[in-house]
Design a binder for these strands. Structure first.
Lengths: 135, 135
DNA sequence: CTAAACCTTGCCATAAGGTTAAGGTCAAAT
DNA sequence: ATTTGACCTTAACCTTATGGCAAGGTTTAG
């Protein structure tokens, strides 16, 4: 139960890197971990759960700033789930916006690429349209 | 025909910022522009066309490094259009990959958000799943 | 003549790390 | 007992593509 992991072990288990864990500590996302006499960081299972929480949230694209809020809500037993959902939906909107932007680029790029034969001749619709049109 | 623009005017016309134009010059993307006696940069129509080319390529999500290649191909009358098309298609692949990643996040996030009532109670499926599941 | 609106360089900050350096520590093998 | 190799420490710089600010010079309009 009381197993303590070094930063490398915690990194391996959580899927983060040791560097990320140190960064999260320095930026205040997680509390400073206790150290051995020689200065090695040690992580208990509670802190490991926090690290895995962070890893999962990063996988979903949440910013570290959002994750700070999520961690704080997670640890507050009197939270309102409304605030959590707001965060998630705001993030979802950003994702949708980003997808729409990328799809717009994709459409234009496909048209451009179609207008270029892609052979050994210099003639190329991509360059022509980048040079002239109002894309 | 021989109109010369200051950096602020060139920025306005191209849609870039003066800061970006200076950065592009310093990073070697565009050549150093001529200056007035007092040191102000001046842009002629050819350089303005380059700036607009850059702006359009940025709007399509090309990196500055890609744009360096595109500019070089554009200015080389003996280019092979094949190389231009390769660049565009490689960029298209990156866009598709990014879209797929975002859509994956989107799907998971929608499920998570659905599992949270979003009211004034602390109970929240988003936090629960970030805390436990293997997302 | 002066004040606003330009322009200049240079440095710092962002997000989220990766990389490298220079050095301390620990455990196992010799 | 010592050495080796894997691990840990901090610090500092690199990345991408800008934004922002400071401190100062220039130009233009009133």
């Amino acid at each position: 139960m009381g197993t303590l992991l070094t930063i490398g072990e915690a990194a391996k288990v959580s899927g983060l890197t040791a560097k990320m864990i140190r960064n999260y500590e320095q930026s205040g996302l997680i509390r400073k971990s206790p150290r051995t006499e020689s200065g090695y960081r040690l992580y208990n299972s509670e802190q490991l759960n926090q690290l895995m929480f962070i890893k999962r949230a990063r996988n979903l694209g949440f910013s570290l700033s959002d994750i700070q809020s999520l961690l704080s809500l997670w640890q507050n037993p009197e939270r309102e789930s409304r605030l959590v959902k707001q965060l998630a939906q705001s993030h979802l909107e950003q994702i949708s916006t980003k997808i729409a932007e990328l799809e717009q680029m994709q459409q234009v790029l496909i048209k451009l690429a179609d207008s270029c034969k892609g052979d050994t001749s210099p003639q190329c619709g991509i360059l022509e349209q980048l040079a002239q049109s109002s894309i």
